[in-house]
Amino acid sequence: MTQVLELSRLVERTLNALADVLGADGAALMLLDDQNRLRAVAGSDDDGRRLELLQEQIGTGPAIESLTRGVDVAVNDLYAARPFGFPGLAAGVSGVRAVLSVPLRVEEQLIGTLNFYDRISHEWQPAKVQTGEGLGRLMVMVLQTLAHNSPISGKS
């Protein structure tokens, strides 16, 4: 239990650091599990956690679109009408407006998405999207290192 708590803290610290580097208000993580289910794994704060949990529940949102299409999904304002926003999701996470979801890959395989968010709507500049992709690679390195160095055997 202590070890799992340490893993959780490490992932949360990583998310906080990545959000800081990008200058975003927060970051959150959705990953495919060993049964190929997309799971809301982590958020750097309550809003991030809610953003992912709601997507898991309603089956739509930038993280899910990013994973489905395998591309970056930059949403300037969640409240915008489809296809630019996700008004259904926005209603449940009023503290989040702009979202950037980048796909995470391990050896070419999609394993999930890293999501950055801001509390005000704004346009995601290409340089920031590119930085988000690089930060996604760092997230994958942390996950890989954890996966190969942690006692995580057993089935869910």
Binding site: S8, L32, D33, D34, R39, A42, I111, L146, A147, H148
Partner: peptide, 27 residues
Amino acid sequence: THIDPDALVASLRRVQTSSSTTGIVQQ
């Protein structure tokens, strides 16, 4: 923390099976 520990562990298991071990220096 704002983490689901069960989801994290199950996802790490997937990462473990889909990637080869990489040394810390290479990372």
